[in-house]
Design a protein around this nucleic acid. Structure first.
Lengths: 242, 242
DNA sequence: TCTCATTGAGAGCAGTGCTCTCAAAACTCA
DNA sequence: TGAGTTTTGAGAGCACTGCTCTCAATGAGA
């Protein structure tokens, strides 16, 4: 579906190759503009100018501004997913706390390096733009899936323990958690899964505050260390031993 | 500074009163547009149309689109601060966990009721717009100040306890925390203050995921209960006893 | 009543997303 | 190679945006 190289493997015609190259140029320039000016300021006309072409020509390759945003969204999700996978890969498979911290640090580092991309993925939605679920849920769930894999692996290895302090579930939430466990093939019990969800959102809360400048400008100078402390606490919240 | 009613209390001339009323109309219409279409889609021309006036006339009252955004930012901060104060006020002064949960629930309820306003305050920054610190830090810090008051009060009452598991501070982070404690007049020690910061950002992480639709659309049906569970965990993270 | 500051209207500039038409270029196939 | 078809880019144009400028009307104070 993406470029015709999947089905039947017909050799691409020169036109197809040129088209693919131009589309990649558009995405590349769009990514530059995204980094420089942010998602809401992304302008197809400006991209066209940088491409050395008149604005209407870009519409031969990209259906609309939204379509370009979707391409950039997928691009950013993939880049973040690659960074997280690479970071996790540097830890031994049974070093679950290390893998958790590597995942979190990779997300934070990528976010700080690509604030506009991070804002596109995890910030307030761009007005009037709704990401098409069928194309973005795949790359968009890589990181949360990686976290679930780490936590579930830790549980299977006996290294994820509940302190038993959490309240009992009502049936509705129990059903939610059971469905997630089944769909993702998890063994981790519901209370730890709920804690994993909290850790997940907390991670993005901490990163968002940094990336979006919600801390006062001079509140925290030692941000790396603060984040490391937060990670240690969150690891314990998730159930990983200290 | 706001309307001249502070200094010398001169009676406002009819012109000044008409001007004030028009400005309030602009803010009111702007707030409606904000709620309907989001911050980035806020248009001075559309506000002017709704006001029944030509666009250039609005510039007699509001310097620019950014200025209107600032007014709406202050407006939203104040509304949120009022909601939080009211919610806290329903709890006895010494019910610190109850006050914490009331604060958090008030933020969440306000956010769900005013998603566009919440996005303006805590979402990705509007491109090209930088909130003027001198006018927004006051109303913008009310809620975090309220949280610090709750936690510090709990500590003074002996109801905020550290589990002693956190690592020692490096000098830089210790200096950050010492400065915050002094500026806010807090007695709560540094390790609990750092945990409070994590709880603070985690709260907004959880709320942002809900408001911005970052959970998959059908991942959690029992969102109220999930949030309540998260709150209980976060209260313990902060050091409040269960 | 006269004077002057304030106000709103209107035109205008440069930018945006997007559509339409038209000619040139590129490819396909006999 | 030459004819026919498809793809491509240019250009004009529409409706919208933020914002500036000028000008006439209005209102308040002396």
């Amino acid at each position: 579906m993406t470029s015709g190289s999947a089905a039947h493997a017909k050799p691409p015609t020169p036109r197809e190759r040129a088209r693919e190259r131009t589309l990649q140029d558009i995405v590349r320039i769009g990514r530059e503009h995204l980094a420089l000016h942010g998602a809401a300021a992304l302008s197809l006309r400006a991209v066209a100018r940088d491409l050395g072409v008149v604005s209407s020509a870009v519409y031969r390759y990209v259906e609309s501004r939204e379509e370009l945003l979707t391409l950039l969204l997928i691009d950013a999700y993939s880049e973040l997913g690659d960074a997280v996978d690479a970071a996790i890969g540097t830890c031994p498979e049974d070093a679950f706390t290390g893998r958790f911290e590597a995942l979190a640090a990779a997300v934070r580092n990528w976010a700080l390096a690509h604030p506009a991309g991070y804002a596109l993925l995890f910030g307030s939605p761009v007005p009037g733009y709704q990401a098409p679920a069928d194309r973005t849920t795949g790359p968009g769930t890589r990181v949360v899936y990686a976290l679930m894999t780490v936590l579930d692996g830790a549980y299977r290895a006996g290294q994820l323990t509940s302190d038993g302090q959490d309240a009992a579930f009502t049936p509705l939430l129990a059903a939610d958690l059971a469905r997630i466990r089944e769909e993702a093939g998890l063994q981790v019990p519901g209370d730890l899964l709920a804690r994993g969800a909290l850790v997940w959102t907390s991670l993005f809360g901490a990163i968002s505050f940094e990336v979006f400048g919600q801390y006062g400008a001079e509140t925290f100078a030692a941000r790396d260390e603060l984040f490391a402390r937060h990670l240690a606490v969150l690891a314990r919240v998730a159930g990983l031993r200290a």
